[in-house]
C-alpha cells in the first residue's frame, strides 16, 4: 500500500479512491480503539465513519505536522466523546456485553477458560465504562492503542506532564474498580 503522504496528495488532487485506501488501512485500528472509548460497537462504527468523512472533507487543512492517523484519531476522539456524552450509556455488565456485540477472544484459549475469559473481559469493560471520559480515553490510548505519552498529548492537546498525572489517576481508579480480579492476577 502506498505511503500515507502520497495517498493524501492523490486524494487532494481529486482521486477519491486514494482516500478510500486510507479508510481501508486505518478503519479497524480506529474502530478497535473507539469501541472502548464509547462502549458500543454500533456507536463506534458510526463514529469511525463520521471521522473519516470529516477527515476527507477537511483534508486540505491537515498540515502534516503529525502523522495522518494521529490527526484522524483526534477527529474521531472528539466525535466519540461528544457522542458518548449525548448517549450516556448504562454500565451494567449485561449492557456492556450486549452493546459490544460479539466478544473477541484471545487467540485459541482453552475451551474451559473461554467463559471465564469472556466474563473477565466484560468486567474490565464495565469498569472502563464507569470511569470518567477523560480517564477512560487516556487509558484506551495508552493500553489499547499503545500510544506514547507524546502522542497522547498530541491527540488530547494536553502537556505531557498532565498526561502522566492523568494516566496515573486513571489507573488508580480502574484498579479500585477491579480490585478482586487484580488480586487474583497478582497472586
Amino acid at each position: 500500500m502506498k505511503d500515507d503522504a502520497l495517498l493524501i496528495d492523490e486524494a487532494l488532487a481529486g482521486n477519491s479512491a486514494a482516500f478510500g485506501q486510507l479508510v481501508t488501512k486505518y478503519q479497524d485500528r480506529l474502530y478497535n480503539t473507539l469501541v472502548h472509548v464509547v462502549g458500543s460497537a454500533d456507536t463506534a462504527s458510526d463514529v469511525v465513519q463520521d471521522a473519516f468523512v470529516q477527515a476527507y472533507v477537511k483534508l486540505n487543512t491537515f498540515e502534516r505536522a503529525s502523522a495522518f492517523y494521529t490527526w484522524l484519531y483526534r477527529i474521531a476522539f472528539n466525535l466519540a466523546v461528544s457522542r458518548r456524552r449525548r448517549e450516556k450509556p448504562t454500565v451494567s455488565v449485561e449492557h456492556t456485553r450486549e452493546a459490544l456485540g460479539h466478544e473477541p477472544l484471545d487467540r485459541d484459549p482453552p475451551p474451559e477458560s473461554r467463559m471465564e475469559q469472556q466474563e473477565r473481559a466484560c468486567q474490565v469493560r464495565a469498569a472502563l465504562d464507569r470511569l470518567s471520559d477523560e480517564h477512560r480515553s487516556i487509558l484506551v490510548l495508552r493500553e489499547i492503542e499503545g500510544c506514547r505519552y507524546e502522542q497522547i498529548a498530541e491527540v488530547l492537546e494536553l502537556p505531557v506532564g498532565t498526561i502522566r498525572s492523568r494516566l496515573h489517576r486513571a489507573r488508580l481508579q480502574l484498579r479500585d474498580q477491579l480490585k478482586d480480579i487484580l488480586q487474583e492476577d497478582v497472586k
Binding site: 479497524d28 474502530y31 478497535n32 469501541v35 472502548h36 460497537a41 463506534a44 459490544l100 466478544e103 473477541p104 477472544l105 484471545d106 475469559q117 473477565r120 473481559a121 474490565v124 469493560r125 472502563l128 487509558l139 493500553e143 489499547i144 480502574l174 477491579l178 480480579i181 487484580l182 492476577d185
Partner: peptide, 8 residues
C-alpha cells in the same frame, strides 16, 4: 487485563 480485551 486491558490488553486481553481482544480486538474488534
Amino acid at each position: 487485563a486491558m490488553q486481553s480485551l481482544g480486538e474488534h
